[in-house]
Design a protein around this nucleic acid. Structure first.
Length: 593
RNA sequence: GGGGCCGUAGCUCAAUUGGUUAGAGUACCGGACUGUCGAUCCGGUGGUUGGGGGUUCGAGUCCCCUCGGCCUCGCCA
């Protein structure tokens, strides 16, 4: 060991000890006669002092060459700081190390930015020089948090008799779900592996194999466009249980979430966590992962809209659409016409809404709007009553198809919730959304798609609907929602071949295709598959939410940019012609593709 | 593929309606200073305003193309 202590270890108790510290020069203050260095490692900062009489003259003059981010080893005695010169902002602020000798372990070129500086550099620079960015205290504490969260999760499942089984990274492409990352096979011309989107099929196989409680911290890959909370490779806490139903899985995760909340937020979370059906979530919030840190629920006014002469409202109301509104309580003064125009543009551009209607509630309780002349007074009063409008409120309405009204209003609700500070940044809310639809209709392909995946079991009482009305069929599926983010999702799996066949049939997967794609799973189901269910949690998102971050890149050591590149390594990059030849792969020029 | 924001010194930012030699803080270099902790003080280096084209007497500023970063719709569970 080159060091006797870390830079976060020393306290007043250690005064008088001879110590050796190693670390990076976080800042230095040259006083001519002497020099102060804040020496940094991942445990903290300790002030090391190059000053007479403890520090010999030649050592002091040598110390003048120190610069930011030099790596040094300093030997000296721990001393109390002079009276009144404690630094209460440092945990080591009562002491300092008076240097007797030191060694530069490595110099540092003038860095593009320093981890100790006040301003955080642009994200592109941080990603290019990730090794510098990762030296910053805040990124280090995030990765420490991540490590601790994962340890808590692992311990929790270990305590509950789960076993950790690794599954392959090189697997087989399944056209379901997201776009696969492909890896060409050298040995087999014209054949490709796919990186796993999740270990879904393997964990079901493990259930058939009798490993009735499986868990894995699994890296997953999806070749889709990125978002603030989506990376092309990400980490799931994947688990599966046999001889259980959905409630058992939910209860198991409830226990885990309560422990995480206790340990990392200091919250005593009552369990079971609240549950809401998908249908209720869409009706009340317009979203399948509603942010329940605040209210401002969607209120249906379709019946009232149908009574109006206003075509914009009456049209959708009479043609199967919906007219719904949200009430921004007491916020009318905060919405300038310009801001309302921006919000209108937002719902139009992002969700295809035709517009955004709005009313201000006047002091006399009457609704006022540029469009209010289109409504009889008596009808306006009904709207006001339905919306629980009080003077000073601002109402927004979207009149459109059910789908557009959900998307536009939930988007608006999320935006306004943040803008109007309807919750504290430290608030945490955990809940479940359950009973998702089994299928969603793909308008383009004019066919049903699995909402989760094709092995999701329908609710027992909905088995009949598989034949009669697929759209109404609800799944034994459940999503964990934290602060309006989908933090995880799982299902009870089909273990009955007959039901599986029906589902495939509905999805338009014929027996030959099914056999070709999932034959191994169907085989396994024939050989004594126990009832099983499971879930996968998004570790990155959970760390992001627990750490109060708004961006998934900040809790991943080496994340990718929005265009899925790594600015540090330059990945993805061109490869040697010979490599391609071995793989039997030829690149089509961009102009031809 | 669509929409939006951004790109000026190593870094963080400023620059009036399109107007003279593009500034500040910090970093860096040199000097001063015996206790600082965002040290201070004095001096200095540092710019293809992301790149290309255009409009104009004149472009950091306006227009077009392009590259890059971020947010978002589509996509994705």
């Amino acid at each position: 060991m080159l060091r006797s202590h870390t830079c976060g270890a020393l306290r007043a108790d250690d005064v008088g000890k001879q110590v050796t510290l190693c670390g990076w020069v976080d800042t230095y203050r040259d006083h001519g006669g002497g020099l102060f260095v804040d020496l940094r490692d991942r445990y903290g900062l300790t002030q090391v002092v190059f000053n007479p009489p403890q520090t010999p003259d030649d050592v002091i003059s040598a110390s003048k060459s120190l610069r930011n981010e030099f790596v040094i080893k300093a030997v000296g005695e721990v001393a109390c700081r002079p009276q009144g010169q404690d630094n209460p902002r440092l945990s080591t602020g009562e002491i300092e190390v008076r240097v007797e000798s030191f060694e530069v372990l490595n110099e540092c070129e003038t860095p593009p930015f320093t981890p100790g500086q006040q301003e955080i550099p642009g994200e592109d620079l941080r990603l290019k020089y990730r090794f510098l960015d990762l030296r910053r205290a805040s990124t280090q504490s995030t990765l420490v948090l991540r490590s601790h969260i994962i340890k808590t999760i692992r311990d929790y499942f270990d305590k509950h008799d789960f076993i950790d089984v690794e599954t392959p990274i090189l697997g087989r492409s399944t056209p379901e779900g997201a776009r696969d990352y492909l890896v060409p096979s050298r040995v087999h011309h014209d054949a490709f592996y796919a990186l796993p989107q999740s270990p879904q099929l393997y964990k079901q196989i493990l259930m058939v194999a009798g490993y009735d409680r499986y868990v894995q911290v699994a890296r997953c890959f999806r070749d889709e466009d990125l978002r603030a909370d989506r990376q092309p490779e990400f980490t799931q806490l994947d688990m599966e249980m046999s001889f259980v139903d959905g409630d058992d899985v939910i209860a198991m995760i409830d226990g885990l979430v309560a422990q995480l909340a206790k340990e990392f937020c200091g919250i005593d979370l009552p369990t079971p966590l609240p549950r809401m059906t998908y249908d209720e979530a869409m009706e009340r919030f317009g979203h399948d992962a509603p942010d329940l840190r605040f209210g401002m629920e969607l209120i249906d006014c379709t019946d009232l809209a149908a009574e109006s002469e206003f075509r914009v409202f009456r049209g959708p109301a009479e043609s199967g659409g919906r007219v719904r509104g949200i009430n921004a309580k007491g916020a009318a003064a905060k919405f300038s016409r310009k801001r309302i125009d921006e919000l209108t543009e937002y719902v139009k551009q992002d969700f295809g809404a035709k517009g955004l209607a709005w009313f201000r509630v006047e002091d006399d309780g009457k609704l006022w709007s540029p469009i209010s002349k289109n409504f009889a007074d008596i009808l306006l009063n009904k709207f006001a009553e339905r919306m629980e409008a009080e003077p000073g409120d601002q109402l927004f309405f979207v009149a459109d198809t059910w789908e557009v009204s959900c998307k536009a209003l939930s988007g608006l609700r999320r935006l306004l919730g943040e803008e109007l500070s309807l919750y504290k940044p430290t608030d945490m809310h955990f809940s479940w959304v359950v009973e998702f639809p089994m299928f969603e209709f793909d308008e383009e392909g004019q066919r049903w798609n699995a909402m989760h995946h094709p092995f999701t079991a329908p609710r027992p009482q909905d088995l009949e609907l598989l034949r009669t009305s697929a759209g109404a069929c609800r799944a034994q599926a459940y999503d964990l929602v934290i602060n309006g983010s989908e933090a995880g999702g799982g299902t009870v799996r089909i273990h009955d071949q007959e039901i599986q066949k029906q589902v495939f049939d509905l999805l338009g997967i014929d027996p030959t295709t099914a056999e070709d794609r999932f034959g191994f799973l169907l085989d396994a189901l024939k050989f004594g598959a126990p009832p099983h269910a499971g879930i996968a949690l998004g570790i990155d998102r959970i760390v992001m939410l627990f750490g109060g971050m708004d961006n998934i890149r900040d809790c991943i050591a080496f994340p990718k940019t929005q265009k899925a590149t790594d600015l540090m390594t330059g990945a993805p990059g061109a490869v040697d012609r010979q490599q391609l030849k071995e793989l039997g792969v030829r690149v089509i020029p961009l102009s031809e593709s």
